[in-house]
Design a protein around this nucleic acid. Sequence first.
RNA 1: GGAGCGUUGGUCAAGGGGUUAAGACGCCUCCCUUUCACGGAGGAAUCACGGGUUCGAUUCCCGUACGCUCUACCA
Length: 502
Amino acid sequence: MNKKVRVRFAPSPTGGLHLGGVRTVLFNYLFAKQNGGDFIVRIEDTDQTRFVEGAEKYIFDTLQWCGLVPDESPVHGGPHAPYRQSERKESYRKYAEQLVKDGYAYYAFDTAEELDIKRKEISNFQYSQHTRDGMNNSLTLTEAETEKKLADGNPHVIRINMPENVDVHFNDMIRGEVSFNSSLVDDKVLLKADGMPTYHLAVVVDDYLMQITHAFRGEEWLPSSPVHILLWQYLFGIDNMPAWAHLPLILKPDGNGKLSKRDGDRLGFPVFAMDWTNVDGSINSGFKERGFLPEAFVNMLAMLGWNPGTEQELFTLEELIEKFSIDRVHKGGAKFDFEKAKWFNGEWIKRYKIEGLRSRVKEVLGDIVANYDDAFIDKVIELTKDRCTLLNDFIQQSSFFFQLPETIEIASIQPKWDEKKNLFFIEAIRMFQQSILWEATDVEAFFKELAAVNELKPGELMLPFRIMLVGGKFGPGVFEIAELIGKKETVKRIEYTLALLK
RNA sequence: GGAGCGUUGGUCAAGGGGUUAAGACGCCUCCCUUUCACGGAGGAAUCACGGGUUCGAUUCCCGUACGCUCUACCA
């Protein structure tokens, strides 16, 4: 079995690959891999005015980060190249003309202004079988008039000639039998005045030319599917049509409705896999930059609209390929929950081996780890990974291993600070300096011993000690921290804080 | 307005004629931890409504309500 699964996305200044888009790609990918098929990506840049340089690269960077790399590089060719619709422009016109010749479509010369007027005059105006008789098209014009208009180079579009009262139906992989009455569907534009196809013509022609057998897309496409079904019937035969799967929408967390990038800004979470730069230069943050691991991102996305029916929630890409099944994809939309997304990431950080985390943690911490070797960094990661849900949490949780804490929260200890404690730490410094042993257990023993001698409860001293080493009330066990940063650094930090407390 | 699609706790969801209606996130309580997390043990909270069919409906059927998507020479 050689199945090809089509992935589509339109790069545009207002686009970017957001959650819903990546999930569509993911499900395509899983299905393709599972069935031993090909996974290809096509760029739908039919509206050139909205195409931005770099958007294409952005898409592939995103797919790469997620581990969803297409089998044929749409940028560098392949058996079905080119993949940019703008480069396939010529092939579409031919099919549109064919439709006109066969009576399934017609030329329409109405200008944008004329249509605007109509829309103002008639509420809910639709260019359809009920209105096309009153419009300026090859159906109302004589053949000679049409020929002349075309010869004179009048701008025109080609619209589909929707049949009257035909039951158009198909079997959706997720929803089962879906049907529409053709009388209620308008005469969609297939070929625009600039010669570019609209999505409706392009999907059908491209899917045919690229021999696509299964097509996944968002639920928002369902209402226009009758146009596509009819086009398949007219052009290539309904038997050659790919199987459709209309995926449920990803909804905004509050209220209802499709998740939009505005929601991300408003609610403070990313809706893009990676940072996306808008035409105006503003940036929508990405999951990657927020400190997500690609595995966690993909895992989280897969569970949004699909469920294996077991209690398993954590999946690798390989496991997803194995377990994924299209009939367990839900029909209803799912609200996006950022808290759950973070939970997935925390779980993945715990699952990750230290070595796997190392380079990512180094990247997050930046310059401050420059002078430390991997062995030291690995120990830090081991001590802190379970308390991080995002990679960026390593900044808070582990910076103090590499440098003096930026702020020392002395406010936490000052109220109960007294001379007795001050003397304890002065003595501790002396004692630490003399000691030869410096493992966490040794430090703890010294510390408690000295506390006993000074008739102080260790409990009263632990917090001050922590604040001195860490700067705040967080982090792993103090004695383990002391061991790792070393005797010299420990003493230095005690002295530093003691000075602050004077 | 029209068409299509949908509706199990706050969220993600399993289930599918008879169940104490799984599990996860979040929330709350307790334990562990002389910090914060992690971890562990508990807890509150759900089948949109109305009619059928049936001995019995959350589950099947029909309505209603509500929500969403589409209704562009955007995808």
